[in-house]
Every structure is written in structure tokens, then in C-alpha cells.
Write a protein that binds this DNA or RNA. Structure first.
Length: 273
DNA sequence: ATGGTCGGCAACCGA
């Protein structure tokens, strides 16, 4: 069996938290780490610390100040693909393909940072919310039958900034009008999932009757006791890989490390042999 | 009902 351990983590500045990332890699040893919100221009990406830890294969798509995604790996990156969704000049999507030099059939990992969407869930009053929905719709077109990103063995990870199920938020009722859990967003995400025939690998292993969060706001004194979280970070897989997934978990202990990101890493393992 | 905290980068924007 050849196993691929994949982690997605919104790091909220890769340069500020490079020490946390190093600690995480040493402890959990994923094969592939997908980061979002790197907030790091390409010419300033901290490649050396990753290389020193054995993660010598690095792809990044960043910009100054905001957004940015990166995928770092212990195994070679066969190819990579950046794309400017919604043509706004935002660095929010990076795909990488792996085969370990032919040891297994190619697997493509799509790493997304979907726009948060601002505060008001109204496309007319709030251009950021309109942008978020347009971004999801463009994803849907790309992964539909005949779409240019559809392949057979693929994983989609990232901060999708939507918590679809009732138990993906601390209070379904209180968050129905809060951006990230509104019915219009949940419906759009469902369309993307259906069009791309994606399987929510995390909910395959941790059923929807269980509360599960990956993000807790900085604006609370004690995030764990108040536990007002949301599941914004996701790992999806195509049918070919969903049945080969295991070891799925949210590593929430990391949210308690010193100067943490407000997001916790999400981990899944796939038998790719 | 409201405000609460971060990071980047140099006044606020985005989350």
C-alpha cells in the first residue's frame, strides 16, 4: 500500500508562523501540506525552512499583503497550475499533481482559498458576497463534466469559507444570516459538490450528527470553552479516492499552540496504490 | 444588541 497523508491549513501568514509550521511538520509528518492565507509574495516565500525539514518540493502562488496559497511536499511535484479565479488578480488557487515518479497513478490536489464574502449576505449591498458566489460558480464550471479541471483521481482541499451542515457551526439557528452559513452559500457549495462529483471525505468518517469545527474566532477569551466554531476548511475527494481514505481528523490541539492561526489543520490519508 | 482580535503594513483593509 502506498499512502498519501494530506493536510490543509489556513496559516494566516506563513512567515509569521513558520515556527508553528515546522513544529507541525515534525510532529504529524504529512506527505503534502496545503496552506492558505500565506500573505506572502512569491519572492519572499520561506523555502529554506521547508527544505531543511525534508519538504523540498514547493509550489506557491502569493501576492503582497493578502490571500496566497502554497503546497509543500516530501514527494516530487510533477506539475502545477495557478489560476486567477474571477480575474481579480487574487492568488487563491493552486493545483499540484503527484505520482512519486510513477509509483502510483497521478493524483491532483486542488488547493483553494475561497473569498470570505464580507459581512452582509446580500449580493446587491455587498460586492464581496457577490464575488464569493461568483468564485464558487466558476469552480462549479471548472469541475463539471467537460470542465477543464476535471480529472479522475483528485482531491480538493482548502478554506472554502462555508460551513454547510447544521453541525458545522456552533448554532445553526443563530448563524443562518451570518456569511459562511447562509442557505444561498450552502446551496451553491452543494451545486459545486454535485457537479464535480465530490465526496466530503471528512464527513464520510465523522458523521454529520457530530459537531465539528476547524475555525474559532480570535475574538473570544477562551475558544475551547466557548466553542463557537465553524467548519470552514474541507477535504473533498473524487469517488476513486473517497473509498480509499482513512485517518481523517481536525487537529484542534494546534489552535492552542503559541500565537496560533485561527484555523486548525485538517488531515486525511489516501491509499493511492 | 454590541463588540470583541488578529496580520500586513504603514492608514486602514480583510478576515
Amino acid at each position: 500500500m502506498i499512502s498519501l497523508k494530506i493536510v490543509t491549513w489556513n496559516i494566516n501568514s506563513v512567515r509569521l508562523r513558520i515556527g508553528l509550521v515546522a513544529k507541525f511538520l515534525a510532529e504529524f509528518k504529512p506527505d503534502i501540506l496545503c496552506l492558505q492565507e500565506t500573505k506572502c509574495p512569491n519572492d519572499k516565500f520561506p523555502e529554506e525552512p521547508f527544505k531543511a525539514l525534508g519538504y523540498g518540493h514547493i509550489a506557491f502562488f502569493g501576492q503582497k499583503g493578502y490571500h496566497g496559497v502554497a503546497t509543500v511536499s516530501r514527494i516530487p511535484i510533477d506539475s502545477q497550475n495557478r489560476r486567477d479565479f474571477c480575474n481579480k488578480g487574487d492568488a487563491r488557487y493552486l493545483a499540484t499533481t503527484f505520482s512519486s515518479e510513477g509509483a502510483f497513478a497521478p493524483v491532483t490536489v486542488h488547493n483553494f482559498y475561497v473569498p470570505a464574502g464580507g459581512d452582509v449576505p446580500d449580493v446587491n449591498a455587498n460586492p464581496k458576497f457577490a464575488h464569493k458566489l461568483e468564485f464558487i460558480d466558476e469552480m462549479t464550471r471548472c469541475f463539471s463534466a467537460g470542465g477543464d479541471l476535471a480529472t479522475e483521481r483528485q482531491v480538493l482541499v482548502g478554506d472554502l469559507n462555508i460551513a454547510p451542515h447544521q453541525n458545522d457551526v456552533w448554532s445553526h439557528k443563530q448563524l443562518l444570516k451570518v456569511v459562511s452559513h447562509t442557505p444561498v452559500e450552502v446551496e451553491r457549495l452543494g451545486k459545486l459538490q454535485a457537479a464535480g462529483r465530490w465526496h466530503d471525505v471528512v464527513r464520510t468518517h465523522i458523521p454529520t450528527d457530530t459537531k465539528l469545527f476547524t475555525w474559532w474566532s480570535y475574538r473570544s477569551r477562551d475558544w475551547r470553552s466557548s466553542n463557537r466554531g465553524r467548519r470552514l476548511d474541507h477535504i473533498w475527494a473524487s469517488a476513486a479516492l473517497e473509498g480509499r481514505s482513512s485517518n481523517v481528523r481536525v487537529i484542534d490541539a494546534v489552535r492552542d499552540w503559541e500565537r496560533p492561526s485561527d484555523h486548525a489543520p485538517v488531515l486525511a490519508e489516501f491509499d493511492v496504490s
